[in-house]
C-alpha cells in the first residue's frame, strides 16, 4: 500500500498506509488524524480538508479544478500548493507523498 506522510497542525509527522484508490482525506479520517475535519464527507462541498501538498508532489497532482480553487481561495491560510485532500486520490504512483495540514480549517 502507498504510504503518505501527514505533517499535523502541532508540527508532528505521521506516516500511514493508505489503501490505493482512497483519498488523502480518507486516509486521515480512517486513522483519526487531527486537523482534517471533512464536514461534507468528501464531495468537494466545503473546505475543511485543506492541505498543502509538499515539494514535487504539488506539481505531480497539478492544479485544483475551478470549483476546488474557488473553495480554497478565500481561506486565510491559502497558499499556492493548497488542495482539498478529498480530491487527491492515492495510488502506488503517490507512494511517499507528503502533505501538511494547516492549523485552521474552513
Amino acid at each position: 500500500m502507498p504510504s503518505v506522510t501527514y505533517v499535523l497542525p502541532d508540527g508532528s509527522e505521521q506516516t500511514i498506509e493508505v489503501k490505493s484508490g482512497l483519498s488523502v482525506m480518507d486516509g486521515s479520517v480512517a486513522n483519526n488524524l487531527p486537523g482534517i475535519e471533512a464536514e461534507c464527507g468528501g464531495s468537494c462541498s466545503c473546505a475543511t480538508c485543506h492541505v498543502y501538498v509538499e515539494g514535487e508532489w504539488a506539481a505531480h497532482y497539478g492544479k485544483a479544478s475551478e470549483e476546488e480553487w474557488e473553495l480554497l481561495e478565500f481561506l486565510d491560510t491559502v497558499q499556492e500548493n493548497s488542495r482539498l485532500s478529498c480530491q487527491l486520490v492515492v495510488t502506488d504512483a503517490e507512494d511517499g507523498l507528503k502533505v501538511t495540514v494547516p492549523e485552521e480549517q474552513g
Binding site: 473546505a47 470549483e67 474557488e70 473553495l71 481561495e73 478565500f74 481561506l75 486565510d76
Partner: peptide
C-alpha cells in the same frame, strides 16, 4: 454553483 461567492460570503 458559486463556491467562491459562498466562501467569500461566509468570510
Amino acid at each position: 454553483n458559486a463556491p467562491k461567492e459562498f466562501m467569500a460570503g461566509k468570510k
